[in-house]
Amino acid sequence: MTPSLREKFLTYLLVIIILVVFMTPIYLILVSSLKPSPIMFSRPPRFIFTPTLQNYYDLFTMRPFHLQILNSLLVALGSTAFSLTIGTMAAYAVSRIKHRRINDVAFWILSMRMFPPIAVVVPYYIIFKTMGLLDTPLALIIVYSTFNIPLTVWLMKGFFDEVPEALEEAAQVDGHGVIATFFRVTLPLTAPGLAVSAVFCFIFSWNEFLFALMLTGSKSQTVTVAVMSFWSSDAVQWGRIMAGSFVILIPGVIFVLTCQRWLVKGLTMGSVKG
């Protein structure tokens, strides 16, 4: 039986209010990024105006934002590739090994992702400084792997758990070794998992701020740090901040709109069934 008309009306009213509240900040980023500076804070706020791409133009010309995008891409893709390789293999081990302590190993790996970044910023700074890696993409690739590897392990473990072991046993009976079985039989069956893990690794790296702020200088600055720097300079460049913010949030929004059903798995580490 369907809810009554009044209930439906109330439901939709509430949902619309909730959507307005939750979408307004995002909408403001877009609108403000297209707003000419003089009317940025006009009273009453103006939502109808001739949009301008001036802020975006400034974003890419007054500072090399495209280079910062490249830095971010390099770091995010690098860390994704590295974490995916190492993490997927570990996930397979965690999923297949029968030893009763293997769960402890899995939880130990997961815990590596949960410690506060600020606690290790200083050691990273000193270590990278002595290694000459400060202000290089490699430093961030390494650091981001510390939370991307555990993420991959837990996501992929879920996918491997679902591949029936009988398939692998069949391959082994046919004479394939452990490694051949993994690459020829198991891995192809978990392709969706690989894609999802990759996207998560990418987005988390792309969005990261604290380490990027502390471990990069002008050379390998990433987009999040760059946008923040428009704020710290003498006058607040709201137009450019909003334009930059909009560019930064594009990958995340695309991800949500296309793969929302994987978000539960990725964000709860399998503690909630998706």
Partner: peptide, 11 residues
């Protein structure tokens, strides 16, 4: 409603 989660905390 899921979008806010995937936005960089700085943003």
């Amino acid at each position: 409603l899921l979008i806010p989660m995937m936005i960089s905390p700085v943003i």
